[in-house]
Design a protein around this nucleic acid. Structure first.
Length: 288
DNA sequence: CTGCAGGGGTAAA
DNA sequence: TTTACCCCTGCA
């Protein structure tokens, strides 16, 4: 595979930090020059922005333009989404001004399932470390610019990995969950192709919840951040609960806030764009 | 230096 | 509804 390059000018909603640091992905790293380098599928890519020009450069498994358009969700009108959400109230409007360059990436379903199982009760640096070690141990090596990168291992590539092997990567108590989920998928107990083609979000969510290590929050993250692309779901973690309580519910004891109440509120307020609203609010309050 | 809480939840009791 | 869980970091 040889290096390819693709440039876009004057694109709306595209800020590197907003996209890569808003909490949706784990394999993009900031470089010394301010650009970001990441691995997805069998691609290694560097993304740079100067002025109004975004430059994508890397080793691609296919045509770089098609790959970029798909992965970065370039055919969606985020201006339209932001305009709609801004009408809701001042809080949402402010959060959108803060994270105006966010886009929701089209990330591989299998990779998101495993990544978010790892994310449970965990912090971002450690999650990233585990995913890198997992990729290095079982993914495919891709060389670029004198550096070695590793694709995220497929289910097939994890076929013979034992619970102890997972534990050695530093996954902790998540080892058995990773093992069980990998084999549920390999054995066809959950069929990812069917999930991808099923328009019924509740049915897909049920299937995801049947996987070991996938609870409500992880299921919603998978629905929102993978190619399943369900913008109506609203993943609730401690940060989102904090934000929603601070802005709307105003319960003096944040820990007493009911998840059902937050869910109901999000549905009423944000409708079919709840997941996107969640990203803006989450990114805004966590960074600030 | 040691001790300990807490972190982008889940599963089991 | 409550509790333990792995590992790492920050802080007393």
């Amino acid at each position: 595979m040889k290096e390819q390059e693709y440039k876009i000018e004057n694109i709306d909603s595209f800020e590197l930090a907003d996209i890569f640091d808003c909490g949706q992905c784990f394999r993009w790293n900031k470089q010394d020059d301010g650009s970001y380098t990441g691995v997805f599928k069998n691609n290694v890519m560097n993304v740079q922005k100067s002025g109004d020009t975004v430059t994508f450069k890397g080793i691609c498994d296919g045509n770089i333009e098609e790959i970029v358009r798909d992965y970065f969700d370039l055919d969606r009108d985020y201006d339209e989404i932001k305009e709609q959400l801004s009408k809701i109230d001042e809080n949402v409007k402010t959060s959108i001004e803060y994270g105006k360059g966010i886009r929701i990436l089209n990330q591989d379903l299998w990779e998101m399932i495993i990544s978010y199982i790892i994310s449970a009760n965990n912090n971002i640096p450690r999650i990233k470390g585990i995913i890198e070690r997992l990729s290095k141990a079982y993914g495919k090596e891709i060389d670029w610019n004198g550096e070695k990168y590793y694709s995220f291992p497929t289910a097939e590539e994890l076929k013979d990995v034992t619970v102890e092997d997972f534990r050695k990567l530093g996954t902790g108590f998540r080892d058995i969950r990773l093992y069980e989920t990998t084999h549920m998928i390999l054995d066809g107990k959950v069929n990812l192709v069917q999930l991808q083609n099923n328009p019924n979000t509740l049915e897909v969510r049920e299937q995801l919840l049947s996987l070991s290590g996938v609870g409500p929050k992880v299921a919603d993250c998978i629905l929102l951040f993978s190619t399943l692309k369900r913008f109506e779901v609203f993943p609730i973690d401690v940060w989102v609960r904090r934000v929603m309580n601070e802005l709307y519910i105003k319960n003096p004891d944040e820990n007493k806030v009911n998840k059902k109440e937050i869910e109901k509120l999000a549905k009423e307020k944000f409708r079919n764009l709840a997941g996107i609203a969640q990203q803006y609010l989450f990114y805004w309050k966590r960074e600030a």
